[in-house]
């Protein structure tokens, strides 16, 4: 990615502002920008949502569900039997070049990959919230695969938080066609998909899908919801994913700096306050 630069004076201005709990746009350290969330914008998708953060960051998420075969790669028998009864979630994040010059060409490859893996890690597994067992159609054979595609359309800082908020909204909006199972005898099972839109159902457990709070360490303090200039001053970021029960669903550091031992514990505590 082409480095985007910040002058030493600008960095110093931001740093001092944060020390005084007053940022360039008038916010305090732990204040979020205004969030505008819309759902159901794309008719071709099974679920969609768009989120704008302040006057900048814009993320569009489309969810499509598709029938797929059950993927059993766990060699241990016990693990395989659990997997056979589950659907799965496939994530993809793309930072569009229209959002920022730095995403042009192959520049976005690294960040796309990082965000995609981060989202897959959180949404696949018990912390993801979705009831994957409800996505199973015929155990061991067919299941629903939920494809979550996030598109970053405009960049004004804090992509990760926006992305998780939009994903949660898109999953709330998703309607899965009902599968009608016919037993043909001799253990042979077939299924049809219901044409009736009235019968389509929400994915169970969408309300437990976590959201993320990103804390940016600048100097010896930390802020939430950073703007691009503030992100350039950031030494290290800490993404903390939390669900509605206040449980931590994931922690990840990114960026090139390190975080003091004591500050890290404090930063993890802060996320609960923010929510």
């Amino acid at each position: 990615m082409a480095p985007v630069l910040i002058s030493a004076l600008e960095a110093d201005y931001i740093l001092k502002g944060i020390d005084d709990n007053l940022r360039a746009d008038g916010r305090g350290r732990l204040d979020y920008r205004e969030v505008i969330l819309e759902t159901g914008l794309i008719t071709q998708a099974h679920g969609s949502a768009r989120c704008r953060l302040g006057e900048g960051t814009d993320v569009l998420v489309g969810v499509k569900v598709d029938i797929g075969t059950v993927d059993i790669d766990g060699t241990e028998e016990e693990v395989a039997t659990v997997k056979a009864k589950r659907g799965r979630v496939v994530c993809n994040v793309e930072c569009s070049p229209i959002a920022s010059q730095q995403f042009a060409g192959r520049g976005a490859d690294d960040i796309n990959n990082e965000l995609t893996q981060m989202m897959s890690r959180v949404l696949n597994g018990p912390q993801g919230g979705l009831n994957l067992e409800k996505l199973c159609i015929i155990p061991g054979k067919a299941c629903w695969i939920v494809y979550i595609d996030a598109l970053v359309l405009d960049y004004a800082g804090n992509i990760v938080d926006t992305m998780f908020m939009t994903t949660r909204a898109a999953l709330f909006n998703t309607q899965v066609p009902k599968a009608i199972i016919h037993d043909l005898g001799d253990g042979e099972v077939e299924f049809d998909l219901s044409e009736d839109v009235e019968e389509w159902e929400r994915i169970e457990g969408w309300e437990h899908v976590p959201i993320s709070v990103t804390l940016n360490k600048i100097g010896s303090r930390h802020i939430v919801d950073a703007t691009p200039l503030e992100e350039l001053t950031t030494e290290a970021k800490l993404h903390v994913m939390v669900n509605r029960n206040g449980k931590i669903c994931g922690i990840q550091k990114s960026g090139s700096g390190s975080i003091e031992h004591s500050l890290l514990s404090e930063m993890v505590q802060v996320h609960i306050f923010v929510i």
């Binding site: 669903c249 922690i251 004591s262």
Partner: peptide
């Protein structure tokens, strides 16, 4: 496992260089 934690840490400086946690866990 229901989750994991990976931590890298500089002992002389007492600074955490990386942390990665996954899973549904209490604080």
């Amino acid at each position: 496992e229901t989750g994991y934690l990976i931590l890298s840490y500089m002992p002389s400086l007492k600074e955490v260089t990386h942390i990665l946690q996954s899973g549904d866990v209490d604080l």
